[in-house]
Design a protein around this nucleic acid. Structure first.
Length: 561
RNA sequence: AGCCCUAUGGUGUAAUUGGCAACACACCUGAUUUUGGUUCAGUAUUUCUAGGUUCGAGUCCUGGUAGGGCUACCA
């Protein structure tokens, strides 16, 4: 008996339920702790849905989720990222309320804890350079060796740490190290560096500090300071947990958070590494972090994803410790499901072929009432002008149609979606023999009803009145691809960079209801043919789905093989 | 090589904690359809391996195997 996804409990939620039942905590307090050094991507969305989702589940008993900027490395961080992260989280539908924190706001607290460690004889200032420290750390199989500075006196360490803080050392000339165990099989415990010197302007504290705490030291202290109960992070921090606990156990902290790890999101065909996404932006291979081809939250938003779709996706993939690869089809399904129900439909023709309906007079004009969304009658209808000449998709005609091709061919009949059935009676060609125009006749009385007995009309195609067509631009965006072979990832990038991987179709013929839009339309899923408008000025707050234009190409191609 | 983690259809996850292995996606087949969309019905495919405990093991124990992580003054 498996529970529906919405009620499913992952191992983390089980643990929280147990902690609540045993009285260990009265309410869960989680946190989402991004470093402001890039934009949020779909992988972050998984963590956001987890942490804020738990807070939401327990909101009635005081559960909450903090947004905390883990800004302890001023050389990589920027205010732009802080702003984008806040707005992306809000867009996803979550709210941290009053609970906005910056690690940089408690630099004094970190400093106190470091001083306390020194006083307990648990930390020392090492004045060796990086290379020496690295060499002494040993490797996976051989234990490390003690630094000559390891047994300095407390007084000496206190004094040296003060000089670090006062800027008396140059960068790289001294670090503060925790004194733990140079022979530990866990490399993280071999006297990890917990403070380093960096003369850099911090986006929040300016030049006030020239020493900054390392992640392994700062993170547990931040959690404890904020009274986080459950500190959820990804699998690569598993080996850091002993150090996390060591810091909590030896510093004067107000609470005892617990770290639990879960698997990060891996998506097939998708570049997820922040480093590589940054590279794409810096080398201008994309227009920015919010380029619709990017797997960032803001890129996906421009591409037409809805917050609901992303949240449902996160619900579907669940939380485990298994490090697998999620098929991107699962992501695509979640948007299709959401958009199919909500998005209004419009017609567009990408690769136009002119059709003249000769049974109409020159000045024929009729307003056809078309449903905005066949899934939702309450979305109403719109009037679309039909005239003697219309554009149809070139792929909707085949000279020599094979069986099971239901659209236009010589002598064949199709329905102009929402309108009449038309029969192709003649084909006009140029000197090369290429089709330039179709001559058709309409079958009267076929709006809203089937053609007479004996006339095959199995498909409905999109069309746009030539006289009323809006010239717009529709862009088809590819995903950013990597190749399956990880060694060839860089080559994968090259194919990303290639303009061919992004097809831009100019001068698409658009339905006149889009008249005010100097359109830039993003293809939602070319595999199924959704085009989603990003333009808020178009239909406020709504997404538009253009059907079929590309879907046909694809599904037909698939049937061919 | 040492330490840590993980293993359930093609993919991602469930399994009332030792009691008939299931859900979604993907795939294929058929029906419906004024979007080759949607919807509906159906087919096919599963507990890494070898032992052990047990009336009974996906679940517990032992040994293998495979994958991931760890040798930053990044987070």
């Amino acid at each position: 008996m498996s529970l529906p996804p919405s009620e499913r409990r992952d191992f983390i939620r089980e643990m929280i339920a147990d902690d609540l039942a045993s009285g260990k905590h009265t309410a869960p307090v989680t946190r989402f702790p991004p470093e402001p050094n890039g934009y949020l991507h779909i992988g972050h969305a998984k963590s956001i849905c987890l942490n804020f989702g738990i807070a939401r589940d327990y909101a009635s008993i005081g559960g909450r989720c903090h947004l905390r900027f883990d800004d302890t490395n001023p050389s990589k961080e920027d205010q732009e990222y802080v702003d984008s992260i806040e707005s992306d989280i809000r867009w996803l539908g979550f709210d941290w309320g009053e609970n906005l924190y910056f690690a940089s706001n408690i630099f004094d607290f970190f400093h106190e804890c470091a001083t306390s460690l020194i006083q307990q004889g648990l930390a020392y200032v090492d004045e060796q350079n990086v290379e020496a420290i690295r060499a002494q750390r040993g490797n996976l199989t051989t234990p490390g060796q003690a630094s000559p500075f390891r047994d300095r006196s407390v007084a000496e360490n206190l004094e040296a740490f003060d000089r670090m803080k006062a800027g008396k050392f140059e960068e790289g000339k001294a670090v503060l190290r925790a004194k733990i165990d140079m022979a530990s099989p866990n490399m993280n415990m071999r006297d990890p560096v917990i403070y380093r010197i960096m003369f850099a302007d911090h986006h929040n504290t300016g030049s006030k500090w020239c020493i900054y705490p390392m992640y392994d030291f700062a993170h547990p202290l931040e959690d404890a300071f904020e009274h986080i109960t459950h500190s959820l992070c990804t699998l690569e921090f598993e080996n850091h947990r002993p150090l996390y606990e060591w810091v909590i156990d030896h510093c004067p902290v107000p609470s005892h958070p617990r770290q639990t790890e879960f698997a990060r999101l891996n998506l097939t065909y998708t570049v997820m590494s922040k480093r590589k996404l940054l590279q794409l932006v810096q080398e201008k291979r994309v227009t920015g972090w919010d380029d619709p081809r990017m797997p960032t939250v803001s890129g996906m938003r421009r591409r037409g994803y809805t917050p609901e779709a992303i949240r449902n996706f996160c619900q579907t993939i669940g939380i485990t410790k298994f490090n697998g690869f999620t098929d991107v089809a699962l992501l695509e399904y979640s948007v299709r499901e959401d958009l199919n129900a909500k998005a209004p439909r419009r017609m567009a023709v990408l690769n136009p072929l002119k059709v003249t309906i000769r049974s109409f007079s020159e000045d024929f004009a009729e307003s056809i009432e078309v449903q905005n969304n066949p899934e939702r009658a309450e979305d109403g209808t719109r009037l679309v002008p039909l005239t003697r000449e219309v554009w149809i998709e070139r792929d909707d005609f085949m000279d020599d149609p094979p069986k099971k091709y239901f659209r236009l061919g010589p002598g064949r009949t199709v329905r102009l979606r929402g309108g009449y059935c038309i029969t192709c009676v003649d084909v006009v060609r140029d000197d090369q023999g290429d089709v330039t125009e179709l001559i058709c006749e309409h079958i009267p009385g076929t709006i809203g009803s089937n053609p007479p007995e004996g006339v095959q009309c199995r498909a409905a195609i999109q069309w746009v009145s030539v006289k009323h067509a809006v010239d717009g631009e529709i862009r088809l965006y590819d995903r950013l691809f990597t190749v399956e072979n990880p060694d060839a990832v860089e080559e994968g990038f090259l194919s990303v960079m290639n303009e061919n991987s992004m097809s831009v179709i100019a001068n698409a013929k658009l339905e006149p209801s889009l008249a005010n839009v100097p359109a830039e339309y993003h293809c939602q899923f070319e595999r199924i043919g959704y085009f989603v408008s990003d333009r808020k000025d178009h239909i406020p707050g709504q997404r538009v789905v253009f059907n079929r234009a590309v879907a046909l190409k694809d599904s037909w191609a698939k049937k061919q093989k």
